[in-house]
Computed example of a mutant assay.
Amino acid sequence: MKKILLTFIITILLSSCNDISKRNSENKTVEYYKNKTEFKRITHYENFDSVHYFYRNGNIFKRGKQLNEKQKLGKWILSDKDGNIREIREWFPFKGNSRLNQIWHLNKKGDTLAWRYEDSIYKQKEFINDTVSRRGTSYDVIYFNRDTLKLNEPIIGYVEIFSHLITDHPANVRVLLAREEKNYNYDFSNEKEVQLDTFFDLTKDTINQKWYKGAEFNDLATFGQWYDTVGEKTLRGFYQQYFMGPTELDENGMKIDSVIGPKTFFEHKFIVIDSIPKK
């Protein structure tokens, strides 16, 4: 019944061109946009907008959050015309715009695909070109030990690589973590002012090898940070794959000194308190 009602509402809105309607409530404003190329609903909250694009049959094409029209935020969900989730894109606000950080492709059953072969799976004229350059799924894992810490207790995490972006050479991974006193801005716009600590994978970090038996040491890096003040914290940084040469001469007679992969950014919000109460 809800789907029928939604389709009915959308049909009415689509009957007029360039239509914008608003509905206000105590803590949000909802706007409906319709023109010749798209129909979307934007819900304005205090700190972000929630955006939904719709197919003409009433099903959702994509949905996610944004800070403004240029800055997508977090995970956006994309579905085909039949309502099957086919793609998840993770966006970071980045220097006034947004940056595609990771992507996951799925088949109609919801199983994760390593690679999506189709040029487009969004078969409606308005959305058919909504594709990105990356068709490979990100399988990397990033883990943090907790969301609430006691004072003088470290936040600990690790990154494990499963999406190997450097295939021609034996690659390693490193994590670069911003210090609390010189942290990244929310959109990573202050890159030149940030102070970073570097954490290398287990081929160099031999102390932590004992905790990860069976792991590929060149694909896993642990990292951490201590705090001496209480309150809400945001840990920001990035990891990247890399290869340091030099190598033998390549097919063109050139030596390769190094190969550096793209940065994958992350942030983790948590709280530091004086003490954790006993249960």
Rank of each mutant, 00 (worst) to 15 (best):
M1H: 07
L6H: 01
T7A: 14
T7L: 11
I9Y: 11
I10A: 10
L14R: 15
S15R: 08
K28E: 15
T29W: 07
E31K: 07
K36F: 15
K40S: 04
H44C: 00
H44L: 11
F48V: 07
F48Y: 15
S50D: 11
H52S: 09
N57P: 04
G58F: 00
I60T: 15
G64K: 06
G64S: 05
K72W: 03
S79G: 01
S79V: 02
E87C: 12
K95R: 12
S98R: 02
N107Q: 07
K109A: 12
K109Y: 12
Q124K: 00
K125Q: 05
K125E: 08
K125A: 05
F127V: 02
V132E: 06
R134D: 06
S138I: 11
Y139F: 14
F144V: 07
N145F: 09
N145S: 15
D147A: 14
T148I: 10
L151V: 04
I161P: 01
I161Y: 09
L165E: 13
T167G: 09
L176R: 03
R179G: 06
E181K: 09
E181F: 05
Y186W: 10
F188N: 02
F188R: 04
E191M: 14
K192C: 00
F200E: 15
D201E: 09
K204P: 06
Q209G: 00
K213W: 06
A215T: 13
D219P: 00
F223D: 01
T229W: 01
T229R: 05
K233Y: 02
L235R: 00
G237I: 01
Q241C: 02
Y242I: 01
M244P: 00
G245K: 14
L249R: 15
M254R: 09
S258L: 06
I273V: 15
S275E: 13
P277L: 08
K278Y: 10
